[in-house]
Design a binder for these strands. Sequence first.
DNA 1: TAGCCATGATCAAGAAAATAGACAACGGCG
DNA 2: CGCCGTTGTCTATTTTCTTGATCATGGCTA
Lengths: 184, 184
Amino acid sequence: MTDLDVGGKLRAVRQMQGISQRELAKRAGVSNAIISLIEQNRTSPSVGLLKKVLAGVPMSLGDFFAGELTPRRQVFFAADELTEIAGRGGLSYRQVGRDLTGRALQILHERYAPGADTGETLLRHDAEEGAVVIRGRLEVTVGDQRRVLEPGEAYYFDSRLPHRFRNIGEEECEVVSACTPPSF
Amino acid sequence: MTDLDVGGKLRAVRQMQGISQRELAKRAGVSNAIISLIEQNRTSPSVGLLKKVLAGVPMSLGDFFAGELTPRRQVFFAADELTEIAGRGGLSYRQVGRDLTGRALQILHERYAPGADTGETLLRHDAEEGAVVIRGRLEVTVGDQRRVLEPGEAYYFDSRLPHRFRNIGEEECEVVSACTPPSF
DNA sequence: TAGCCATGATCAAGAAAATAGACAACGGCG
DNA sequence: CGCCGTTGTCTATTTTCTTGATCATGGCTA
């Protein structure tokens, strides 16, 4: 956990202005005690209060928190932490990672219930994709090619070719796929 | 008072991710109720809590508050709101405005007690300055020029010239000066 | 040196916020 | 239609913050 240290930052800002806790408190219209407590990180001020305090400097919340870095991106994902992005009609696409903006790769753990189908209207997007079938049987149609893949078999094609997936077996079908870039 | 609308912003960010209050709450490790309350601006979350919530997005506090503008700069100042920047040995320099970084002008309300003196070591800085004497008598030395100014009289010179001020009268001397830029 | 004032820290009491759980509204599906 | 899960909101209780007052410390002045 990145420690936030609002206190240290506030103290730095205040001392940069060369004013006392009491002076800042008076300007901001809050009690002097709270300035002391905040600077010692003995309390976590509400956003509203911090804004009031910073108005006494004056400084915006944006400036105050500038330099806060985005929390480290998640590297490992439990099975139930994958993000469901399809989840209808026997189709489940569970994506590795929540927000893929700025990322180069989309990885999905796909499950097709028996009879599940991505639909007559063939898919197209400007990317490349591939996958390995883990369990069950998956009928894959790409352009004018069609094949039923068994566990251990795989596919890889240019996503601009129209394509379609169907589980034509009696058993659930499980696939792990990758796509790049994630232009959805 | 600029209304902060943390709630609206949080709701926007959450919906941008297409997740529910409960989902965000689970990711952030907080109760779902608090997300609802925050989004309705019915509570003002602590900085720590907001950071936790945003970690579930994920987003940094800096990004969240980016776009918050600095509170309007103070335009009017009561006499006791001027900032004392000298305040020793019968000398009082009271500045208009707290923090002059980024500003082009320093304006001082100066008072010299009888006998007060800016010192033998002559002042120098890279600016220009001028002033009007309001009350009392002030001896001003600039380079090789010296003169005693009476109320209503004034001076203006290049601050790179060595200079010195003294109250040689029996009465307190009051001056309003301006200096540009405020390179102290 | 003693007095005075400013500063920062601390405390008990009151005011808010955070939590867990319950509730009504909505939509999907058999 | 009734069932079920999800959603957002609301309520009672616990937790935390916020305040005004008080304390210890240090600098300045007389």
